[in-house]
Amino acid sequence: MNLLEIKNIKKTFDDLEVLKDISISVEEGEVVSVLGPSGSGKSTLLRCATLLETMDGGTLKYCGETVCEDVDGKSVYVSKTEIKKIKNYFGLVFQNFNLFPHYTVYKNITDAPIHIQKKDKKEVEKGVLPLLEMMGIADKADYYPCMLSGGQQQRVAIARALAMNPKMLFFDEPTSALDPELTSEILRVLRSLAEMKVTMVIVTHEIEFARNVSDRVIFMDEGYIVEQGKPEDVIDNPSNERVKAFLNKVKKA
């Protein structure tokens, strides 16, 4: 079943048409990388999918449940209560982590599951340590985010998203704020998540990583998907001129 289904999404900021008629679907267990130059609409696509932005036109569905429907070219969203429920289906990891600075690592991870999802406190607390262990920061539970490196903060952010038990995870350039060493830390974590068959959509500039980890690569440019398919096809044998030019520049750099 398709976890995520987006059809004919359109999004305009003021006069700038950022997304022009994009459709994608993501199956359970799939890892999809979204590549493309800056300003191509990758982040906007992610922000529409995670409901941080409302789309102007098109439909959005999670697990077959409608979030918004296209009525005469305009997206019409379902009720707040339904959206609240659907928000449990996905998690988002930001480029600049966006941890809550006044909460400890532990509280950052447990607050939403306990107080928002109203899960059993004991159950949630039991799950924290394994999560932190998986992220390699088991000793950092009582630290505040400011005491951690960027890579560690990002791992906390991933743990925070996972603690909500989402069906899929979105990553918005998760390594762009990190140096190469910390980047590889995070990519390792993502790889292990991929091996555990966590459904992920990753906006990234790490071409090599995209090739090695994803099941499918989407290349965006100027608000359109210009090419998509298996990573070896899109990255090694692109047919589109724009993709070729972009990849050439990236490889040279």
């Binding site: 995670t50 409901l51 941080l52 609240k84 928000k87 449990n88 996905f90 998690g91 988002l92 930001f94 600049n96 966006n98 941890l99 809550f100 600075p101 006044h102 607050d111 939403a112 107080h115 928002i116 999802q117 925070r160 909500m164």
Partner: peptide
């Protein structure tokens, strides 16, 4: 920062919860 609101939003905090738990303590500081 705007990112604090967005993080709270994605985690399902309501507007008032976001203000009470995330924004207010940082504002006080």
């Amino acid at each position: 920062p705007k990112g604090q609101y967005e993080a709270a939003d994605v985690l399902g905090y309501s507007k008032s919860q976001t203000f009470r738990k995330i924004v207010f303590p940082q504002m006080v500081r």
